[in-house]
Each structure stands twice: as C-alpha cells, then as structure tokens.
Amino acid sequence: MPLHPKIAEILAILPAPPDGPLDPVAMRAGEESQVPPLEQRLPLHAVEDTVAGEVPVRIYTPVEAEAYGLLIYLHGGAFFLGSLDTHDHIARNLAKETGLRVVSVGYRRAPEAAFPAGLEDCYAVVHWAADNGEWLGWNGETLAVVGDSSGGTFVAALTAMAQDAGFDRITHQVLFYPSLDLDFDVDRYASLRENAKGYGLETGILKAFNAFYLDSGADPADPLVSPIKRADLTGLPPALIVTAEYDPMRDEGELYGKRLAEAGVDATVSRYEGAGHGFVQHFSWLPEYHRVYEETAAFLDRRAE
C-alpha cells in the first residue's frame, strides 16, 4: 500500500537536515524539546526514576497489583540519540497495553561512551531485574526485553549474550524495526534501495547516523554489533520482529526472523504496511499503528511451549 497519507503529509513539511557533520548535542536538544509536559502524558498508576546499579532506569507500573511480569525496554536512536524522556511515551504505552511493569533503561550513548558501554548497561539491567525480583514485585514468570531501532539491536545482542552466559531468565524478545546489520552496503538488502529516499530515514544517512557508534569501537562484523551475523541462533527466546514496509532496514529484520525460525526459535515477523522506520515512536497515535502495542501484549501473553 502507499505510504500512510498522514505520515506522507508530515514528512512533506519536515525541514531538510542541516549541512555538515551531525552534531549529537544539538540533535539531542532538538529531540528533548519535543517531549510533552508531564500532565500531557499517558497516566499510569506510578512512574519512578531510580538506579539499577549504576544505570539510570525509569519504572512504569500500569496498575496496582500484588505481582507483575517484567518488561525491560531499550530505546532507539542510532546509539547516540534517545533518552528516558524522548521515549517515555513508548514505555507508558507498553506498560498500559501489556499490564507488565516496565523498566526503561537510560544506557550510556556514543560517542561519549565507547562500545560496548551501552550494551553492557542494558545487559546489566536485565540481570539486575532478575536479581531484584522481590523488590520489583516480579511474579517470576515473564521477563521480556523490548527495543526499537538500535534498541532492537541491543535486544538481539543481549539475548545472545545471556544464552552464551547460561542466563535463561529472558522469556521473550521484541524488536521494533531493528538495525541488525551495520554493514550498510546497499546491495546487501533490496529494501536499502527500494526505500532509499522519501520515507523519513534514508539509506544515505545510515552511515553518518551510526558513525558515532562504529567509530567508538563497534565492529560491524561482530555479532554483538550486527546480530544477524551470529552463526548459531538456536535456543534463543521467542521473538516478535516488527518491520515497516518503507523502512530501508526492513529486509534485514525479516531475514533475521526467518533465520530464527529456521533455527527452531518461535519467531513471528509482522510487517506494518504504509509505515516507515520509527513509526512506533512517531506515529503510534494513529490507530493503524497503535495496534503494535496490542500485538506486543498478545505475544508477551504467550508462554513458550
């Protein structure tokens, strides 16, 4: 189907990116300036900022209950953008629709923090949640990890890290339009050419956006950087991979889902038609795309056989 008309309308009036090198400080400030005031955000039973070891986290409690499943949320932003505040609305919607207690992770970002600092922060918070289950009111059942874009990269990487370390508490992984192959050769995936221009995130900017991460020591050949390069995917947690029709990174996400399924993993790939990269962050207020939260809730409600 064509690009959703509301998305097309908004993309048509967005200013062109500034010339010259990307300025992470200015870009972060621009993102933060768009965060709505607290009184305009989705209300929940409780939202609390705290620290998991040394990592800032924000805990979202949807309703009062005796115990909860846990969802660890990792925000996107090409490894150098995004924050607890810019993605607060996603965490709130995940909590409301899933009924799980959500722990959003304020991990360290490139370029100030070299690889693998951000990934290690996310992995540490997953362990922290499992180790502090009584304090968090964890029911000992669901422990899901969910991430969008580069947060999805971290989800795939840390589930592999957990498996290699013998940590088997993660029950589900959910990846929203993940970046799984940081080798941006346009001939690797058809979607890098098909969706190269005009849909928001463009193929030509991928290298520049990810340069802060790659220049900090992240090697695209490393499966912890490009999870699709992991040779053995057997035994990983059940996965929901959400892709967008007009995303340059659509095909790598769908290929990863196919490879997971071929390895015997319970893997579901769900493509959202008419959408581009970032639709959960920017366009989930549209009914057609808000259902991504309902789909996530239904997936997390399933227990692996």
Rank of each mutant, 00 (worst) to 15 (best):
I13S: 10
L14D: 13
P17T: 09
L22Y: 00
V25M: 13
A26C: 10
P37I: 12
P37Y: 07
E39W: 04
Q40P: 00
Q40L: 10
L44F: 10
L44I: 11
H45Y: 15
V51T: 08
A52G: 03
A52T: 04
E54Q: 14
E54T: 15
E54N: 14
V63A: 12
A65D: 06
G69L: 00
I72R: 00
Y73W: 08
H75D: 13
H75E: 13
F79E: 05
D85F: 01
T86I: 08
I90M: 09
A91L: 05
V103P: 05
V103W: 04
V105K: 11
G106D: 12
G106A: 05
A113I: 05
L119V: 04
E120C: 01
D121S: 14
Y123S: 13
A124Y: 14
V126Q: 11
H127V: 05
W128S: 14
D131V: 06
N132C: 07
N132G: 07
W135M: 15
E141G: 07
T142A: 14
V145R: 07
A156Q: 13
T159M: 00
A162I: 07
D164P: 01
A165R: 09
F167V: 10
D168T: 15
R169F: 07
T171R: 13
H172K: 15
Q173P: 03
P178M: 05
D181R: 11
D181L: 12
L182I: 09
D183L: 01
D185E: 09
D187R: 10
Y189A: 03
S191C: 08
E194A: 14
N195R: 02
A196I: 06
A196G: 05
Y199C: 06
G200A: 15
E202K: 09
A208L: 06
D215Q: 14
G217C: 02
D222A: 04
D222Q: 04
D222L: 03
D222S: 02
P223S: 11
L224G: 01
S226M: 08
R230M: 14
P237R: 01
P238V: 03
A239K: 13
T243F: 10
P248Q: 04
Y256M: 07
G257W: 06
G264I: 12
G264Q: 12
A267S: 15
T268G: 03
E273V: 05
G274Y: 01
A275W: 03
H277Y: 11
H277K: 12
F279E: 08
S284E: 09
Y289W: 00
V292I: 11
A297I: 02
F299C: 12
D301R: 14
E305A: 10
